Amino acid sequence: MTAPYVKTHIENGIETIEFFHPAHNSLPGDILAELADAIAAAGENEAVKVIILKSGGDRTFCAGASFKELIAIDDAQTGQVFFSGFANVINAMRKCPKFILGRVQGKTVGGGVGLASATDYCMATKFAAIKLSELNVGIGPFVVGPAVERKLGLSGMSQIAIDANTFYPAEWARQKGLFTQVYDSTEELDEAVNGFAKQLCGYNPEAMREMKQMFWQGTEHWDELLAQRAAISGRLVLSEFTKETLKRFK
């Protein structure tokens, strides 16, 4: 099986950041840390005008956090560190002064929905159904909630958070504002993402930087907020209810 990775490629002002894990792109802490660092570095690189965030493989965009690491948590501090993984990536995306384009080729779950929501412009295939499954294991989408709510609104976010066992179609996500466009194939998606990235490279970088700051206004407290949310999840994962639920998933 292919080893997990985060890799970057810069060409003509476009930096592509790609992550991968053989377990349906479910991401352990070390890969999440690499991803956050790559996004931060791209934001500081003057040669980069726009960023494309994508995952490897043909099917799942991201299945959320590593389940193997989740079931190994045995204290609150470890739990908070675990749930801070996606928080750090979302905050890196929020602070990055460059537009981040999301390329979602397939299903996305939990933290993966948070990543898609934290992009500035997200395109997907018709296979990119979304699900917030956290309540299924006795937790909740506390860390990704602010990013998802920012895109779907409170009504849309609460709907999929409460209905934690249902995949919502890509077209539903488009209608709610998460995806800008939905394509019939990955080939069409890639053509659209790459074409749009090239188009953005022709715009004034300073104007795009100011626009990004404007779009994210009101989220300046997210470093503290997402840390608090990670602590909530870290506490809940130690509850008897969640422990018993996780045993059934082993």
Rank of each mutant, 00 (worst) to 15 (best):
S84D: 14
L236Y: 07
G85R: 05
P97Y: 07
L226Q: 04
E134C: 09
G64H: 01
F61I: 07
S239K: 08
A63R: 06
I10D: 10
Q181E: 15
K151N: 09
N91H: 09
A3I: 09
G145V: 06
L53P: 08
C201N: 09
E220N: 04
Q217W: 13
E15V: 13
L200S: 07
Q80Y: 01
L238P: 02
I162N: 13
N25E: 06
A40N: 14
R209V: 05
A38W: 06
G57N: 11
V193T: 10
E69D: 13
A23I: 11
A147M: 03
R59M: 10
A72P: 02
A36K: 09
K7P: 04
K131H: 04
T242Q: 03
E134S: 12
Q217N: 05
T60N: 11
G111M: 04
T242D: 00
T186K: 14
L226D: 07
A36Y: 06
M93T: 02
P141M: 04
E34D: 11
T60Q: 11
I14A: 11
L101H: 03
M211E: 11
R248C: 06
I232Q: 06
P146C: 08
A170K: 00
F142S: 08
E188A: 14
G195H: 04
P141V: 05
I51C: 06
D223K: 03
A128W: 01
D184I: 03
T119R: 09
V143C: 03
V193D: 07
I130S: 03
I160V: 08
L246E: 00
S185H: 01
E171A: 08
D74R: 13
C96P: 05
A92C: 12
A63E: 12
D37F: 01
F215R: 13
M214D: 09
A164C: 15
E46Q: 13
P28E: 09
A116Q: 01
R103V: 01
T60F: 12
G218Q: 08
T186V: 14
D74F: 10
G138S: 04
E224I: 12
T2V: 13
A63Y: 01
I73H: 02
N88R: 15
V148F: 03
N45D: 15
E11L: 14
A118M: 09
N136D: 15
I130P: 03
D120H: 12
T8A: 11
E46V: 12
V89F: 03
R174V: 01
K176Y: 06
A197F: 00
T2G: 13
E44R: 15
L236P: 02
A87C: 07
P146I: 08
N91L: 06
Y5V: 05
I71T: 10
T60A: 14
R103K: 15
Q80N: 12
D58M: 11
E206Y: 06
E44D: 15
A33W: 03
R59E: 14
K151L: 08
E171M: 13
F67N: 13
A65I: 13
L32F: 00
N88C: 11
T180K: 14
A33Q: 06
L35M: 02
A231E: 12
A161R: 09
K98T: 07
A192N: 07
